[in-house]
Structures are given as structure tokens and as C-alpha cells.
């Protein structure tokens, strides 16, 4: 079943075409990669998916609904979770609090009067769900440390956990291995596989680490100069001469 269906997405800035009729689809529960050289339009495409930019043309539908006019924070409620290339965590909160805030946001009952009546305290079932996700990601040991004390690798896992609390059907990961060392990258790959298996959420992975992409995803889309130059199964795409020339650079 197709979960995310983007067709003919076009966006230009001041006369420069950043995206030119990009089509991309992700099935439910599938892991898909999106690669391309820097400046190819990956970030622009990402921002269009998330509603931070409005495309000039084309349609994006998610789970059968047209996303064109849906504001960013509502897309999260529809089931799109994301992480950030430059890590974005809430200063002064512990990992547990990060997950708890996301759980509250998912329930969408942040009414002021409830707070004023003292109904804003954490409820047992909310805490249980937080605990469950902490365990899934092996974050329990770090759960109550201040976020500033965590390493970049752990921080990325907290970001994934925060996104998971909203019960996403699709997780968008923006260069999750950027800045991680060898071991941290390996650990992250494992966690992603685990999450995909346990929570059955589809993953769209934007990444430069070719071995990581090859190990994780079944299908890959390749962007270059705002156009889709290849798409298909991972092995086929990485064997494609045009892709190797534009992205990996070992074919002259």
C-alpha cells in the first residue's frame, strides 16, 4: 500500500529551479533511501514534505490525504515524524521529558483549563508508553540525565524516540549519521532496523553514508540538480553508471 505519494514536485527560488518534477513514493512499513550530491535539492524536497516550504507545483499525498494545505505541526498528527540533520533537542529537558512532551502532543489535549485544575500531571499510561519506547531504544540508562550531557549519537536516538512517540506511519530521517563515529553509526543502523521491525513504521532516509544506506534500505531515489536521475532497488541503483558518476564519482 502506498503511504507517501509525491508527484511532480517543483520548487524554484529566484529563478533557480531547486526541484523539477520530483516523484517519490514510500509504501507502508518500507525503508527507502534518498541520496544525491549536495545542493541536489534533498533538503528542499524534505521541507516540501514537511510543509516548511510550499511547492510551486505537484501534489504530495500521505495516507490518501492531500497535504498541500496542511500546516507543519498538523502533519505530525497525521503520522509524519522526523529528525534533524543539525540535532534539535529541547534544552534543559531529560530524554524522558522529551518523550513525554511528544506523548502529550500526540494526545493533543493541552488545554489550559486542564492545567489550571491540576489535571496536567503525567498519567500512568502515558508514563508506561514513554518507558516502553525508552526500552525499545535502550535509552533507559540515560533517561534522566540532562540532555546536554548526552553524546551526539545518543541525542540522535532521543530524536528518534521523540518522533516515535507520535506514532508515526512514516519517519523522515535527515542525515542521521552526520557527525557520528563508526561505532555510533553502526549502533544507529541497528536501532533503525529494530524500530522498523517493532513499530512497522516506514522510513525515508536521506544519507551520505553509502554503506549505511545499502545495508538498510530496499529502494533508493537519486536526485541531481533538482531532478530524479534514478530510482529502483538498492542494488540496481548503486550499479547504475549515471548514479556512480553523479554521486560516488568513481566512473569517469
Amino acid at each position: 500500500m502506498t503511504l507517501l505519494d509525491a508527484r511532480g514536485v517543483t520548487k524554484s527560488f529566484a529563478g533557480i529551479t531547486a526541484l523539477d518534477g520530483v516523484a517519490l513514493d514510500v509504501d507502508a512499513g518500507e525503508m527507502v533511501g534518498l541520496i544525491g550530491p549536495n545542493g541536489a535539492g534533498k533538503t528542499t524536497f524534505f521541507n516540501c514534505l514537511l510543509g516548511m516550504l510550499r511547492p510551486d507545483g505537484g501534489t504530495i499525498s500521505f495516507d490518501g490525504k492531500d497535504l498541500t494545505r496542511v500546516p507543519t505541526h498538523r502533519r505530525a498528527r497525521l503520522g509524519i515524524g522526523r529528525t534533524f540533520q543539525r540535532i534539535e533537542l529541547f534544552a534543559g529537558m531529560t530524554p524522558r521529558e522529551h518523550l513525554f512532551v511528544a506523548e502529550r502532543a500526540r494526545r493533543g489535549d493541552g488545554r489550559l483549563w486542564k492545567d489550571l485544575l491540576g489535571l496536567g500531571r503525567p498519567k500512568p499510561d502515558e508514563l508506561a508508553r514513554v518507558e516502553e519506547t525508552l526500552e525499545l531504544l535502550s535509552l533507559t540508562a540515560d533517561a534522566d540525565r540532562p540532555i546536554e550531557a548526552l553524546s551526539l549519537g545518543r541525542g540522535r536516538v532521543v530524536e528518534i524516540g521523540r518522533a516515535l512517540m507520535t506514532n508515526p506511519k512514516l519517519l523522515l530521517l535527515d542525515e542521521p549519521s552526520s557527525g557520528l563515529d563508526h561505532n555510533e553509526t553502526a549502533e544507529l543502523s541497528q536501532i533503525l532496523q529494530h524500530v522498523n521491525g517493532e513499530r512497522h513504521c516506514a522510513i525515508l532516509l536521506v544519507e551520505h553514508d553509502v554503506p549505511m544506506v545499502r545495508a538498510l534500505v530496499t529502494r533508493v531515489f537519486v536526485l541531481d540538480f533538482g531532478r530524479l536521475i534514478a530510482s529502483g532497488s538498492t542494488n540496481d541503483v548503486f550499479a547504475d553508471a549515471a548514479v556512480r558518476k553523479a554521486y560516488i564519482g568513481d566512473v569517469v
Binding site: 544525491g36 550530491p37 541536489a40 552526520s178 554521486y247 564519482g249
Partner: peptide
């Protein structure tokens, strides 16, 4: 310091 961070393989080579 980490000049290749976030760069595509082809650009890292450059």
C-alpha cells in the same frame, strides 16, 4: 576539522 561532514562521496573526494 571534519571537512567532509555532510558531503556526498563525490564531493568528499574533491
Amino acid at each position: 576539522d571534519e571537512l567532509s561532514l555532510g558531503l556526498a562521496p563525490i564531493i568528499v573526494d574533491e
